[in-house]
């Protein structure tokens, strides 16, 4: 049970980082932390206590395996995260070229 709670704490740390930090790069790191917490949680839903690798063999009981599906899904989610992070870093670099700073309090020409 505690491991799920720690996973939630990791997610909250990421969110705090996004909300409170002023440096663009730190905001991106916060997003990455949150993303990994979500992925970790997805993997944890597959875990069975004392489970074994989900490989089908003759004469072996198919019960008590870990669930292989979330692993496949999380691989996809990691790739999506990679794309998002790459785009965010690219935008951050362009912002640095234009504004000459990473501080979001100085990048405030729009006020939505």
């Amino acid at each position: 049970m505690i491991i799920y709670f720690l996973c939630l704490v990791l997610f909250a740390i990421g969110l705090y980082c996004v909300l409170r930090k002023r440096n663009i790069i730190k905001i991106i790191v916060g997003i990455i932390i949150s993303e990994y917490a979500a992925n970790l949680f997805f993997i944890l839903t597959a875990y069975r206590i004392g489970g074994r690798a989900p490989i089908f063999q003759e004469g072996v009981d198919i019960t008590n395996m870990v669930d292989p599906l979330p692993h496949a899904l999380v691989l996809t989610a990691i790739v999506i995260g990679l794309a998002t992070t790459a785009l965010l870093v690219a935008i951050a670099m362009r912002i640095y070229e234009k504004y000459g700073t990473f501080d979001i309090t100085k990048i405030r020409e729009l006020n939505g």
Binding site: L15, V18, I24, I31, L87, L88, I91, A92, I95, G112
Partner: peptide, 14 residues
Amino acid sequence: ELEAAFKYAVMGTI
């Protein structure tokens, strides 16, 4: 454009 896109990307990712 860059500022708006960064804001949009961060909020959209969350």
